[in-house]
């Protein structure tokens, strides 16, 4: 087992007409909850997609659990897309069964516990769920996997405060940090702050800062939001 779960070495990602990541290198430790913060278009989603193997770097290399990132590592990475990726014609229960069939590490028992925790109705069709409950169902599907790395792209975006709170709580309750690591992109920085270990600040396709959240409070005597503003102003 390698010490770092994710390693970026001089990674550049170019989309037609846009430089999404510019020569980025960093490593992520295991067993932590890590946030990617930064303005829209700073490269957060690109980093998550590169790790998930959904896009390839234009230059440089990305390794996950010591292996080159790509479709082959799909079994080791649970990816929550910022897009609505649920089938509207399935019920909640059918969606869970469908995902259990897709992923060998899916834990049905855990899914049932989270279902209960989230007060989701198993017989309801996805198309009839509120946006908040679709957000809850998406996090349920991700947290029910025993994958060593969970990638969450904007799991809190556009959801009301109660739903955001239930999603953060479910993460704390159902993650196993002895075996799992979370990397999430978010704009809801102050809300998620108490749940974090590490934070990475991104701007213009580059890493502007990477620090332990407790250290930010201890050394800089400021909140994550202040630190973020400071790093991005550099």
């Amino acid at each position: 087992m390698t010490e770092h779960i994710v390693s970026f070495s001089q990674v550049t990602k170019r989309y037609p007409g846009k430089l999404a990541l510019n020569n980025v290198s960093f490593q992520l430790p295991r067993g932590r909850i890590i946030a990617l913060v930064g303005p829209n278009g700073s490269g957060k989603s690109t980093i998550l997609k590169l790790i998930a193997g959904l896009v390839r770097p234009s230059r440089g290399s990305v390794t996950v659990c010591g292996k080159k990132a790509g479709r082959r590592i799909a079994g080791e990475v649970a990816y929550l897309s910022e897009l609505d990726a649920l089938y509207p014609f399935f019920t909640v229960e059918e969606t869970i069964k469908f995902n259990a069939g897709l992923f060998a590490d899916f834990e049905h028992q855990k899914a049932q516990e989270i279902l209960h925790f989230m007060h989701l109705e198993p017989d309801k069709k996805v198309r009839h769920l509120s946006k908040g409950n679709r957000g809850r169902l998406k996090i349920l599907l991700t947290l029910s996997r025993r994958a060593p790395l969970l990638l969450l792209d904007e799991p809190l975006a556009g959801l009301d405060p109660l739903v955001r709170d239930s999603i953060i709580k479910s993460m704390i309750s159902y993650l196993d940090l002895r075996e799992q690591t979370v990397l999430m992109s978010t704009h809801e920085v102050s809300e998620v702050e108490p749940a974090l270990d590490l934070v990475i600040s991104l701007g213009n396709g580059q890493i502007k800062g990477m620090e332990e959240v407790e250290k930010i409070r201890e050394q800089y005597g400021c909140s994550l939001v202040d630190w973020m503003k400071e790093t991005l102003a550099k």
Binding site: G31, R32, I33, D165, I168, K169, I172, S173, L175, L177, P194, A195, L196, D197, E214
Partner: peptide, 14 residues
């Protein structure tokens, strides 16, 4: 550790 983390909404490592 987990109960305390959930009660306070903080990271279990904390």
């Amino acid at each position: 550790v987990r109960e305390m983390a959930v009660q306070n909404g903080v990271n279990p490592n904390t």
